[in-house]
Amino acid sequence: MVLLLLLFTLFSSQPVLAQESASPSAFISPVETPTLTPSPTLIPTSTPTPNPNISLFTQYSQDYKNQLFIYQQDYLSYSEKINVHTQYGTITTLQDKIDASKKVLISRNNLLRHYLTALRVKLKIYQDQDPTTSQSIGIEINKWEDWLNEQNSVVASLNNMDDIKSFSMSFNSRYIYIQQALYTGLVQDEINLRLHTLSLIKNLKEDIRNDNQIKPESQEWLSSITVKADLVNSNLRDAYQLTQVDLSSNQFTDFYPSAKNKLGKANTYLLEMRNNLQSIVTKFYNH
């Protein structure tokens, strides 16, 4: 009787094993497997509600990288066709050159448009720190995205090198404005990030101030942090001011390195504030 029971259990368990082996494991790569079973460690503890713009930015930046590859391929093809036409100078090589030029102009437009889209989304991540400026820059960037999209249809209609040349000249006259919007967006994005860090430090300072274990003698130290906060704000304002350049000379002024310098100074002050807070906390908690 016992043997029969054992046999029955053995046979009844067989179909389960068969099902496991027959599962379509080939379609699931080992890399993808962990994502299917999310572990608690994957959930960030510091941000319970992750900003949706972060994942959106990751997606758009990947699109931009893909487009960069396409542009590089088209550019190589364009260079090759130019060399061939310079060497042979036939009607066929000229047509090949025109086609390659149109193709690379479209992929260049797409590349720039993808970059601007990703940057606009990136700007949204911390835009609540300075919503008015961030949104106005976002609108400006979006305007150039639409313009670049329109240019693709213009390029498609070009059929000789003279038209391509005039298109390129027209593009270059607008490109300085695109650069202006692009670098302003980059600077503003970093300003927003540093402002967000500053707000975190201020919140932490208040927590420390209200901590019963921190003695009142630390109040003076905490006040010095306010002075440094002013220095941070001052440097961030300077960085923004550098983006407000006049484009009447029809030439792009590269303000980005100077702005980065100001942003770097602001970040140094933020680090000093953070270290001061750590000194206060460790002093009173370890004595």
């Binding site: 542009y71 260049r108 593009f171 994005d189």
Partner: peptide, 29 residues
């Protein structure tokens, strides 16, 4: 305070790593 310090540190150490594309503006000229 560890978590808050950690978050601040992560932001302070974050560098802008999204450089604009290097385009050739002489195409077609």
């Amino acid at each position: 305070y560890l978590e808050k310090f950690n978050q601040i540190d992560q932001e302070i150490r974050t560098e802008e790593n999204f450089p604009p594309p290097q385009l050739n503006t002489d195409i077609g000229l």
